[in-house]
Amino acid sequence: MTNPYETDPEKIPSTDPYADVPFYGRYRPRPGDFRVDLQHVNSHSTDSLRYWASVVSLCTEENRIYPADEGGRDVFALGSVIVKSSHLHARAGAQSTEIDFSYADANEHRAITLAKTVLKDVKVPEIYFAGKINGRQVLVQERLPGVALCVARPYLSRDQRDSYKEQARKILHQLHTIKPPENLQARSHVVSDPNILSNGRINPLEGDILFSGTNHDPDMSFMHNDLTESNCIVDNGIIVGLIDWEMAGFFGWKTAGEVHRRIRTPQREHFVNVNLREEQLQGILYWNDLYDQDVSKN
């Protein structure tokens, strides 16, 4: 039986759902891994920008783990770092069609800082650089050791999956103890993007859920807002890390839960024309009810 936490590409079976991208969601540090030069961390000096441009140049199709649509950013696994960049995308004439990710990156940075105040046993990535390289917004962050839950899931028992769900709920409750600034009266990402409803960063349905109607929740608190299996890093039965904080913000429990159920996870109606046993369907949908728990429970 395959080890759910296997990270050696040579030991991943050809039947693995991610066999064609063996570095996706799998990482164990090795002596020869690329590591950032710490003198350039979060620096925008001329020398540092030249250094970060050289880092981006190391990101190729060979180490790309997520190819984005036009306007988005590809994701690369470069040794001990993750790089988000659109440099492999062709420009449309003289103008770039890339979405403005500067607010997303600022939101990720600020959200991670907040998360560190309550997540003592769950690691979050360090941000090494966020800024423009050759006119494109680039984010370089720490690559957390472990395996993404979505990668490990095919090899987990039901009890193991249930354990991870309960751990994730505890993490949500920890984050939910962080209250918004006193002057914040409406739902908001940690760093507000003034063009969030029109620049393509979020699904229109998500925009309706978060920012239409009263735009206020009585229990507004800090939420990761993208707690999918792919963003939970696990190892030997424990959630050891949490990544991708760009959607984090101050929302109510029910609001974040609605985004989770309707956008972040598959829904039963998606499979009405597929001949699946109920047991198979339950396995696909098992992460949907993550928020279906009284917010007051710990």
Rank of each mutant, 00 (worst) to 15 (best):
M1G: 14
T2G: 00
T2L: 14
P4D: 08
E6V: 08
T7V: 09
D8R: 07
K11I: 00
K11S: 12
I12D: 09
S14M: 13
S14A: 14
Y18T: 09
V21I: 14
Y24H: 11
G25Q: 09
Y27T: 01
P31T: 02
P31G: 05
G32P: 08
R35C: 13
R35K: 14
L38E: 15
L38V: 11
V41R: 12
H44F: 04
T46V: 12
D47K: 14
Y51R: 03
Y51A: 01
C59L: 07
C59S: 04
E61F: 06
E62C: 01
E70Q: 12
R73I: 02
V75F: 01
A77N: 06
L78Y: 09
L78W: 06
V81P: 02
V83E: 03
K84V: 03
G93H: 11
A94Y: 10
Q95Y: 13
S96L: 10
S96K: 04
E98P: 01
E98F: 03
E98T: 02
E98I: 04
I99Y: 00
I99R: 13
S102C: 08
Y103Q: 08
A104N: 13
D105H: 15
D105W: 13
A106E: 13
A106M: 13
E108S: 14
E108D: 13
H109C: 11
R110A: 15
R110C: 10
I112C: 08
T117G: 09
V118C: 11
V118H: 10
K120T: 15
D121W: 05
D121E: 15
K123C: 12
E126K: 15
G131P: 04
K132T: 11
I133R: 01
N134T: 06
N134Y: 06
N134G: 10
R136V: 01
R136G: 04
V147P: 04
A148C: 14
L149Y: 07
Y155V: 00
L156H: 07
D159A: 15
Q160W: 02
R161G: 02
K170P: 00
I171W: 08
L172F: 06
H173R: 15
H173G: 04
H173N: 07
Q174K: 15
H176R: 12
T177E: 14
T177P: 00
K179T: 13
P180N: 06
N183G: 00
N183Q: 11
Q185E: 14
Q185C: 08
H189K: 10
V190C: 07
S192Q: 13
S198E: 13
G200W: 04
I202W: 13
N203Q: 11
G207V: 07
L210T: 04
H216R: 15
P218S: 10
P218M: 06
M220D: 09
F222S: 02
M223K: 12
M223C: 15
M223W: 00
C232F: 01
C232I: 07
I233P: 02
V234Y: 03
G237P: 08
I238P: 00
I239A: 06
E246K: 01
G249W: 06
F251R: 04
A256I: 00
G257M: 03
H260Q: 03
R264Y: 02
E269C: 10
F271H: 08
F271M: 03
F271W: 05
L276E: 00
R277M: 10
E279H: 10
Q280N: 11
G283R: 07
L285M: 09
Y286V: 02
W287Q: 05
L290N: 01
K297V: 12
